[in-house]
């Protein structure tokens, strides 16, 4: 376990507060993609990010938003590196993040638990508009790779579901 200095914690807070470019209601910390912040030297900081999907095009926007946020905080040299392992999972989205997703109209991913742990109950996907659990899948892929398109059979509204990964 690497201990963070007070400065690294502060910079991590700033980087983590950057909104996701595609889901601006979520911060990068709530999405669980910020892996670490390290001060390499005076005015030099390295930030580790992990992509949700390998091909997620938002990662470049995230990197430049983090750079800008830390520049504004007086860090002249910011490098953002992408790490793949351990692979990001929708379980990395915080409880607060899930609540915000639902409020924004996107059904949050269901918890998956550890791969070798007890098999979790399959929970119904709840309509973020009316709260009904009576929903059906329209397409496994929606506006972005991380979402599926569903329809509520009670209120008839279509909605995105952040699918489990």
């Amino acid at each position: 376990m690497v201990t963070m200095t007070a400065l690294e914690e502060e910079l991590s807070r700033i980087a983590g507060a950057v909104p996701d470019p595609e889901l601006p209601v979520l911060t990068l910390r709530e999405l669980g993609v910020l892996r670490g912040v390290q001060v390499l030297g005076p005015g030099r900081v390295e930030v580790e990010l992990t992509p949700t999907y390998t091909g997620c095009p938002a990662i470049e926007a995230m990197a430049s938003d983090i750079e800008r946020a830390l520049h504004d905080h007086g860090v002249p040299e910011v490098s953002v590196v992408t790490v793949l392992a351990p692979a990001w999972s929708t379980d990395d989205i915080s409880d607060e993040g899930r609540r915000k997703l639902a409020e924004y109209g996107i059904a949050p991913p269901r918890p998956q638990g550890p791969a070798d742990g007890p098999i979790p109950l399959t929970l119904a996907i709840r309509c973020p508009h009316c709260g009904s659990t009576d929903t059906e899948l329209l397409s496994r892929f929606s506006s972005t790779a991380c979402k599926a398109l569903r329809r509520c059979t009670t209120c008839r509204e279509p909605f995105d579901h952040f699918k489990e990964l």
Binding site: R140, F141, A145
Partner: peptide
């Protein structure tokens, strides 16, 4: 829906 699905699969593969 398939337009979107196939483009999404393509994006995963491109990544």
């Amino acid at each position: 829906e398939e337009d979107v699905a196939l483009a999404n699969i393509a994006l995963d593969l491109l990544g």
